[in-house]
Each structure stands twice: as structure tokens, then as C-alpha cells.
């Protein structure tokens, strides 16, 4: 079952109590084309999430927005998939016609150095630029939070300058320190906690990305904008940063 909601949204079945909304670009010839990373599409995703939260709060249990899709998990005791499809069709008909408010802007400090960013040299070598240039290029864009997942508080930010885009490590590290700022392809992220991971590490961020004891527990939500700003080691430590034992 594939239902066209409008020129940029299509609806598919996901599971017993889950439907999937796929978003694409109006300029794409066919919306069955593979989805792409785009701020505009992601902003439509964000808009649709707000609409669903507001208008289907009883029927919908959970939502997982991502780059160009939303998984809609619904309560089978409240609605069946056909009725929900119809409701979504009606609700999202005009979604994606622009007028989206930009998300909040968050500045994240990063201690970039060869000690805190163990993959900096490798990235510089591949890009044939200096380590300083890699650091400067990473700070240049205003990134967008495209998705949150993988681990509590892990935000996928895009897009990294093409020159410093790096594939994931072929074999993930067993331990990536908490606060590690890393790159995978054209995405960047801050590891919210120590975990295994295959992204390329370029620095450390002293800010807690996820803390179950604080309110809100997470600073970022999908649709927010993020910039990175270089700080010195002393400031990193003053802000509560902890250097991992390597």
C-alpha cells in the first residue's frame, strides 16, 4: 500500500501498528525516488511532527522523525490503519508548503586538538589540508539537527563541508569517550555518553548532551540549528569537560 498525500509526502505501511511517512522534494520528478538529505525536506518533517502531535495525540503513541521520514506508531485500541491513513492524508495535505519557523540556535564549545581529536591528522591528510583548516571548516556551517537516535541524546547534524567528510571506520572503536565530536560522511555529532562507535573523532565538547537528571534532559531537538566554537583546554576544563584516559 502506497498512498500519496501530496506532491511531497507519501504514506506506507510499516508494521501492525505503525505507518511511515516519506518526504521528498517537490522538484524531484517522482516522489518514489530515494529520499535525500535536505534542510527543506527535514523542515517539512518537523512541521508534520508538530501537526500530528497536536491533532492526533490520542491515536498516536509515538513518533520517530528522521531525515526525510516519520514513523507513526498508533494505538490499535483507538484507531485502525485505514482511518489513521485518512486522518493523516487530510491533516498533512498542505504540509510542506513553506512558512516553517526555524528551530532554536545552539552554540556548542569544542576543544579541538590532536589529543582530544585523535582522527584530526587522518582527516587533514585525506583532505590534503592542515589540521587547523579541518578545525576551521568544521566550525563554518550552521548545522541542522536532522534526527535523534542510535543512543539517548545522539543528534545527527548535517551537513559537514564536503572536504572533511569522512567514511565511518571499517571497524568501530569499542570505546568512544563521552563528549567526542565526530564526523561520519557529511554528518557530525557529539557522543552523549561513552559508547562504541565508528565515527571520526575531531574534538571534545564539555556540554552534557543528555542528562536524565536535568530538565530538559536534552538541549537539542529535531529542527534546531547548531554551531561549533573552538575553545582552549583550560576553558574546556572550566566548563566541566573531562579528558578521557587514553
Amino acid at each position: 500500500m502506497s498512498t500519496i498525500i501530496n506532491e511531497s509526502i507519501r504514506l506506507e505501511i510499516a508494521g501492525e501498528n505503525a505507518l511511515m511517512l516519506y518526504f521528498s522534494d517537490k522538484t524531484q520528478a517522482s516522489i518514489t525516488l530515494e529520499s535525500v538529505i535536505s534542510a527543506e525536506i527535514n523542515s517539512n518533517v518537523h512541521q508534520a511532527v508538530q501537526l500530528i502531535r497536536t491533532h492526533l495525540s490520542v491515536e498516536v503513541i509515538d513518533l520517530i522523525p528522521s531525515y526525510a521520514s516519520i514513523l507513526v506508531v498508533f494505538n490499535l485500541l483507538e484507531i485502525d490503519h485505514q482511518h489513521l491513513s485518512n486522518r493523516l492524508k487530510y491533516l498533512l495535505k498542505t504540509c510542506g508548503s513553506g512558512g516553517n519557523k526555524p528551530g532554536k540556535l545552539i552554540e556548542l564549545p569544542v576543544y579541538y586538538s590532536l589529543a582530544s581529536g585523535i582522527d584530526l591528522t587522518r582527516i587533514a591528510k585525506q583532505a590534503k589540508i592542515s589540521v587547523e583548516q579541518v578545525i576551521a571548516l568544521h566550525q563554518k556551517p550552521e548545522y541542522r539537527v536532522y534526527a535523534i537516535g542510535f543512543a539517548p541524546g545522539f543528534a545527527y547534524l548535517g551537513e559537514v563541508d564536503q572536504r572533511i567528510a569522512m567514511p565511518r571506520l571499517t571497524s568501530p572503536r569499542l570505546k568512544v569517550p563521552k563528549g567526542a565530536v565526530a564526523i561520519a560522511d557529511r554528518q557530525t555529532a557529539v557522543y552523549p555518553a561513552e559508547s562504541p562507535g565508528g565515527w571520526n573523532i575531531i574534538g571534545l565538547c564539555p556540554v552534557d548532551m543528555f542528562n536524565a537528571q536535568t530538565d530538559p534532559v536534552m538541549r537539542l531537538s529535531v529542527g534546531d540549528r547548531v554551531t561549533f566554537v573552538a575553545i582552549e583546554k583550560s576553558e574546556f576544563l572550566t566548563l566541566g569537560g573531562v579528558l578521557p584516559c587514553l
Binding site: G15, E16, S66
Partner: peptide
């Protein structure tokens, strides 16, 4: 592969 997307129970 596909662009990362939500995974439901039982997928």
C-alpha cells in the same frame, strides 16, 4: 542502504 529512518517493533 537507505537514509536512516524509524524502526518499528518486529521490523
Amino acid at each position: 542502504g537507505i537514509l536512516s529512518e524509524g524502526i518499528c517493533y518486529g521490523a
